[in-house]
Design a protein around this nucleic acid. Structure first.
Lengths: 344, 344
DNA sequence: TGCAATTGTGCAAACGTATGCGTAAATAGC
DNA sequence: GCTATTTACGCATACGTTTGCACAATTGCA
């Protein structure tokens, strides 16, 4: 059975008091070099590890920040995390990653875990299921530094760092229009995901601005995963007449779209122009390379971390605020049908 | 300043003793329904969260398992994690993900963190820099359930779940030979990564088995990332005569390889056959679709979790042991030059 | 009405580490 | 050689929660 030694055990073994052992382990000035050496040697020999539960019982600050994400397999997640690390690790914070796997129940459990270990701050993104924020009330009541990212929260006041999804979708749709597309379909995300909704809004807004009618038959929903999207894609590809452009809610599904379109022998981009969203690492290497909308995800992580730090330093000084990041249109071969000047 | 209320605070407010409050919060049978309700209501009102540092001070078991990975952006990592969750969450364990970012120093720090919070088990993969295992001695000395995965540890006795990388590389190289390739290059991984080394061994072994000479000029190294591999890829593509097949150490770099080869106007697979390793999600959607070697990563996670559980239940009963998982050859368009019967 | 059984609550100790304070021993200063 | 200072350590307490035990209050039963 695993059993760590304690400072008391060490004290007994070396005929010292626990306080001396504790001070020796923490390199306290008042302990003689000789005693320190004795303690350190013995501690190493028995594989001593401080019990954090005891150690932190006295201390207000834990120097840990929790990151809770619904999804960990995408480029977006790992890059956000990387941005967060960039800011928080130099400040001495440990990062604890937790994964809610798009399940509300787990999210609640893990938020409780993070507050129970008295994380100094929490950076969070909700699951697709999340529409009750009762579990976040505790965080507000205790004034825990908290930042919501990537997926917006409606009717809950807190710091948020979001992408301007509507603008990104607008850019993508406008681009397809500029490339000559006049029947633009949208392969959308889940109806209950706020960023997917905003992308639909941007899509509609761009159609509207260009005098194109909004045809509900040209929009279909799936989740964000390529493996679950074949039916939705086929629905669009088998329409008659075929749309001449598709704005896809993310690159992963856009990939599936290109794949099935190729199988059908469609010429991309001339028969069908395709643009995705997210600029995954692989998107530029595709044939044809995939046009997309890039979100400054690393910057999103950095900002979230900074906002978290500010709250840690002075909670009251920073009232809840939402930052909207600006997306960038990336034009590649999957949509480049002509080359008007402004896209040169 | 954030300040949680304690059971003592609640007790004072409700004119109860801390023990009654504690029992009420834990739904202890000996507390009256009325008192429980009073406590629960008040606790909710003030946003009470149990202090885990105090709570776990008394208890041996924490029901947490730490996962420490050098890299979190790949499909491999997220799938392994998913396999681990599949086994451990139903058993009631919380999973704590930590990221060493290929830095030995961080690895040491985070291993210490995980032992300090008395994780019931640790599932781990070393960084590329790791060749000193002093920090793992503590784990052995305290008999902490521990499983190393994906990247082998040399000269350190512990439970390991690894892929048979040599066999996978052998399969890939043999396949290129079967497709008619007679000048097979290898775009390898970092020299100090054990799985990259094993893949080189498998490559050499297959050359040898087929009577092909090993030409050191046909092997070049890079790290595993596509963004850093252009020079290495160009080195191979600019050789004269051009190799007629390349076995690439992972799919990500194979993608870069296909991309640059296409830019040079090479016909894949007929002038140059390419096969990768890992079967990333996007590989099958490429054009040409990418041949690869698939590792049962989900199963790797499941097995690691099971081995971890066994140790938690009875450490002594399971002496250190290494399991080698069998890779699977996935033949797709990037290497399918002819179609001999056994690849039909 | 008296006594036993049951119910609900409080007391006190324990978990392991950190730290203010007290003090004995060693050293310095004259 | 005596006092003053410094050095090195121990004592006691605190952190917040849990839990064995004691006990008061209530109920049940004859």
């Amino acid at each position: 059975m695993s059993k760590y030694q304690s400072t008391v055990d060490i004290a007994r073994a070396l005929n010292l008091s626990p306080s001396t052992v504790s001070r020796a382990l923490n390199d306290h000035y008042s302990i003689s070099a000789k005693t320190k050496q004795r303690v350190l040697d013995y501690a190493r020999e028995v594989g001593f590890q401080k019990n954090l539960y005891a150690s932190r019982l006295n201390h207000r600050k834990t120097f840990t920040v929790g990151i809770l994400m619904p999804e960990i397999s995408s480029h977006t997640f790992s890059t956000i995390t990387s941005g967060i690390k960039e800011v928080l690790e130099p400040e001495g914070y440990d990062l604890i990653l937790m994964h809610s796997a798009e399940q509300y129940e787990k999210e609640v459990h893990l938020i409780n875990y993070l507050t129970s270990i008295r994380a100094d701050g929490i950076i969070y993104s909700p699951t697709k299921e999340t529409n009750d924020y009762a579990h976040l009330e505790t965080i507000l009541k205790n004034k825990i530094p908290f930042v919501n990212i990537d997926r917006g929260l409606t009717d809950f006041r807190c710091h948020q760092i979001l992408l301007n999804d509507k603008q990104g979708a607008y850019l993508a749709t406008q681009h397809l229009f500029d490339m000559g597309c006049r029947s633009i379909a949208h392969l959308a995300g889940p109806k209950d995901a706020s960023n997917a909704r905003h992308r639909i809004e941007g899509y509609q807004s761009a159609l509207n601005a260009n005098g194109l009618p909004f045809d509900p038959a040209l929009i279909t929903h799936s989740d964000f995963r390529i493996t679950n999207s074949n039916d939705a894609i086929r629905y669009l590809l088998e329409r008659d007449p075929l749309p001449d452009g598709i704005f896809v809610v993310n690159d992963e599904m856009a990939l599936g779209c290109m794949h099935l379109a190729s199988e059908k022998g469609l010429d991309i981009p001339h028969q069908l122009a395709i643009i995705g969203f997210d600029d995954e690492v692989y998107s530029q290497y595709f044939r044809p390379s995939l046009s997309t909308v890039r979100s400054p995800v690393q910057e999103m992580g950095r900002r979230a971390a900074r906002v978290c730090l500010q709250q840690i330093e002075n909670y009251e000084a920073y009232p809840a605020d939402t930052q909207l990041l600006t997306p960038q249109l990336i034009v590649r071969a999957s949509s480049r049908r002509t080359t008007p000047k402004h896209y040169a």
